[in-house]
Simulated assay, not measured.
Amino acid sequence: MRRYSIILLFIAFFASAQEQLPLRGLAIAAPSEENVDRFVSFIDKELSPLEINTLILRVDYNYQYKTHPELVEKDALSQKDVDKIVEICTKHGISIIPQINLLGHQSWAEDLGKLLEVYPQFDETPEVTLPKVYQWPNDDGLYCKSYCPLHPDVHKIVFALVDEVVAAFKADAFHAGMDEVFYIGSPNCPRCGGMDKAELFASEVTKIRNHLASKGKRLWIWGDRLIDGKSTGMGMWEASMNATHRAIDLIPKDVFICDWHYERADPTAVLFAMKGFDVASCTWRNPQVAIDQQHLLRELRASATPKMKSRYQGMIQTVWVSPKRFMDMWDQKSTEEPNEATTMKALFN
């Protein structure tokens, strides 16, 4: 009888470990205006058969905002373009989560982002000038610029954009990015210099979360700043080396965490789930790492308590090339391998 019970338990565990995870997502930049129709067709013919149900769309300033037209990029998406994407996603039951990078990622290499270009007073480190030719590492520790979270005018601007993009995409959630924040609590900042960086980060997350919650929307963020890079040995990219990790105990538990690891299937989803957060594991361009991450999540769900199981939500494929290039990879017009397309096919097929 005992042997029979053990066999049944093994069968139940194996079946649970093979179940499809609830969240099957793609995180990608919004397409350029000229590639909208191709992107819509890609959603219809390629994403829907894979049962993708979540699309994190990095919009940033690639939308014709009416609240702050001064921040609109050249050839930005019109509402008509957005409506095409919304319509096809609605048809296939795909939730769109628009993203604007908040706090960090306000510049890239030699280029300043729109927010700091138009409102330079929001810059956390105005003394750091962008180089003509960017290199890492550098004497300024410059990766990407940040805005000052304590500037009295910054949220009036960014929250207007957040509200507008959420409405434009008829979304129930918003992704604020907030990954790889190296500039925070700068000693030269007259507002936040010398302040606790974990408290600063947590305060910004909470402020964004509260704004969204007041409108019935949910906040999603990347999880790297909430992991201790020193004690885990994960370092400064996939975790924090500037003490923001303690913010994990200071932010609301309904923030959705996108836990990205690209070189190894690090089991940090357990950390977030045990702290009370819903979490998805995010991969990039290594098919084996993606498959290992997926197996790990399935095993965690199979062995978890019912309360913990629901927090392990699923997998998100991240794409850091343009949508056009990604679709070219998907159509095998690119010979570069491995890449995001081959990884996604391995993950969700």
Rank of each mutant, 00 (worst) to 15 (best):
T305S: 14
D292G: 02
A304T: 12
Y312H: 07
R298P: 03
P287D: 01
Q288N: 14
T305M: 07
V289G: 00
L300R: 11
T305E: 07
Q313A: 06
S310I: 15
A290P: 03
K307M: 15
E299N: 14
V289A: 00
G314I: 00
R311L: 12
M308I: 14
L296R: 12
K309L: 03
A302H: 11
A304H: 06
I316Y: 01
L296N: 11
T305Q: 07
R301S: 09
L300C: 09
Q294R: 15
Q294G: 13
Q313N: 09
I291P: 00
P306G: 07
I291Q: 05
P287A: 01
V289R: 00
K309F: 01
L297G: 01
P287F: 01
K307W: 15
L296T: 10
Q288E: 12
K309P: 07
Y312M: 06
R311Y: 04
I291M: 03
L297V: 12
K307Y: 15
Y312A: 03
H295P: 00
L297K: 04
Q293N: 11
Q294E: 15
P306Q: 10
K309H: 08
A290R: 03
S303P: 07
Q293H: 12
P306W: 05
Q313D: 02
S303D: 12
A304N: 10
D292A: 07
L300A: 10
G314S: 06
K307F: 15
P306V: 09
R298F: 00
I316W: 01
M308W: 13
Y312L: 07
A304Q: 11
Q294T: 13
D292K: 13
I316P: 02
L297W: 04
R311H: 09
P287C: 03
P287I: 07
L296C: 04
L297P: 09
I291T: 05
H295I: 09
I291F: 01
I291S: 02
K309Y: 07
E299R: 13
R311F: 01
T305I: 12
H295K: 14
Q288P: 05
